[in-house]
Write a protein that binds this DNA or RNA. Structure first.
Lengths: 309, 309
DNA sequence: GCCTATTACGGAAACCGTAAATATT
DNA sequence: AATATTTACGGTTTCCGTAATAGGC
């Protein structure tokens, strides 16, 4: 029994029991993985993979439990490596932040700049994806922290803290019919919006859930003419006159925006942007620092408490 | 990095960083352990042992964390082995029960008999010790379940369930001055007892704590002339006229006892015998069966809930 | 001087990659 | 026929035990 076998087993499971794919992912040979797992089965005396001849269908019941144990072990090994690097020398390394466009474009820049100044030897990687992908990256250990409004709190195996609240805004070009509400945005209604073609986020993104829910509850079916991942694209099309945009408030600065910005908090409610890490993961010192910079008021002690199971 | 290194590290820590002792315990060579740990340090890039020349003093700060991770990993490996054996074939194996004399002599016999009938292929080992030793055996993985009244609930890293309540009794030879209270045992007082030399358990055993506490609270200092680990010894000396015995109620059956038995629940309160396992340990099927036999009313589901963190 | 940890060394075993064979769709 | 898994094989590396050396107390 050795760690290599656990690593192989974990990867094989992640690759849906395709050993060839696992070999590619781990930069090793396919027979090596096959043999290692067969040896593990031999040593334990139980089959792990349910096979039909040479086809692997999935896990046997004991195989499921063994995989679970293997994942725990590998997580501890990962933690061990990280903490060793933490103590080994200068805080060099890589901070991998999985996040959405909204955060990366409008929220993170000042934080990232500050972080880069404080930890010049830490490489920063921004991994963009939609919230479910972000959650998956955390679970798989491909990212250290994830930031998004959706998915994170609902994904088992992750630990979250709330960072900030935000609300949606509608954006229209100057001269648009709704522009007259600029002085009294509180009077904007769902019906007003539904009278125009809408441009907003794709499913899963930045509170899109809330938008759909609000219209559904009011029994109104808006016509969404364009869906995009990011507010920049949405604003571009709004400026081109394609319709009314609904975007996250953080993505629109009324002062510097050529478009008219109409707050919509009263229509779509409040959203909470959250930061998540994998439960049980060891966090290197600079990860705590990053979180502290992003969410003022959280220090290492409070963060640890929030992440404890 | 490999499991062997973790195994060696754990044992070295258990042996108070005496590598020679660890080698003996693991039936391997001392240079092997030394080298394995040095290699681990090299790979991680941090010292694990605080050394003064060639003397190992203890753990460095990162070493403490590494040891923690190593112990978690080894626990998972142990669990893996056990669950594999569980699925591998007939439920053969060994059930190691750490317990005190009181339990082994008066409580466990019927349970053990029943268990042996149901699982003829499981070898049973009764490991006797005092409660702190029992707790230690569980923590070290040298025993699967522990049963005792004291220590278990207070030891971190163990998970407990209550099995039964019991109270103390006083035993005196026929004709003793206190024998006249046999019809009205409720009138027995601490003062009555303190007027005679007492024979009871050693510290740490079977509710001795309670006995001392009760006398201390009443401001009475009893004269304890003899302390023993087990009720058999105590009863022997009581029969010989050395004094009044105070023992666990389960250890005295009034019907078959040559001695007079006087219940003392009103003097020393109630005690709870507990069963404990190591937190996070995998329990083989027959371990659950054993617990169910010992503590009727507990099924596998309830036990798992009680042991969950 | 005795005990303990580390270094040196050599044989055995394990590991891992290429190549071939075999099973599955 | 094409793809995927397992078996076969061989070179390299790692492992581990014995023997020797160095370092505390």
């Amino acid at each position: 029994m050795n760690l290599q076998q656990f690593r192989f087993l974990r990867e094989a499971a992640r690759q849906k029991f395709n050993i060839t794919a696992a070999a590619r992912a781990l930069h090793t040979s396919q027979p090596g993985i096959s043999k290692a797992i067969i040896e593990l089965e031999g040593e334990l005396g139980v089959p792990i993979f349910a096979r039909q001849g040479k086809r692997i269908l999935g896990l046997t019941p004991p195989g499921q439990q063994i995989l679970l144990a293997a994942e725990k072990i590998m997580q501890e090994v990962d933690n061990l490596k990280k903490l060793a690097r933490d103590y080994a020398g200068a805080p060099s390394g890589t901070l991998r932040v999985a996040t959405t466009h909204t955060q990366a474009r409008y929220v993170l820049p000042p934080v990232v700049q500050k972080f880069a100044r404080k930890f010049p030897q830490v490489r920063l990687k921004l991994l963009q994806g939609n919230p479910p992908q972000i959650a998956q990256m955390l679970v798989n250990g491909q990212a250290d922290v994830g930031i998004a409004t959706e998915s994170l709190a609902e994904t088992p195996g992750l630990a979250c803290i709330d960072i900030y609240e935000w609300t949606h805004v509608a954006v229209v070009p100057p001269g648009h019919a709704l522009a007259r509400l600029q002085a009294t945005p509180g009077r904007l209604t769902l019906k007003d919006l539904a009278r125009h073609p809408l441009v907003t986020y794709e499913a899963h993104f930045a509170g899109r859930t809330r938008i759909d829910a609000a219209f559904a509850e009011a029994g109104i079916e808006p016509s969404i003419v364009l869906e995009a991942i990011d507010a920049d694209v949405i604003k571009t099309y709004v400026a081109a006159g394609m319709g009314v945009g609904i975007i996250a408030g953080v993505a629109a600065d009324p002062a510097h925006e050529p478009l008219i910005v109409l707050p919509c908090g009263h229509l779509f409610g409040r959203n909470v942007a959250r930061l998540a890490v994998k439960q049980g993961a060891y966090l290197r010192g600079f990860v705590y620092s990053f979180i502290e910079m992003l969410a003022p008021g959280w220090d290492k002690r409070r963060i640890e408490e929030a992440f404890a199971p």
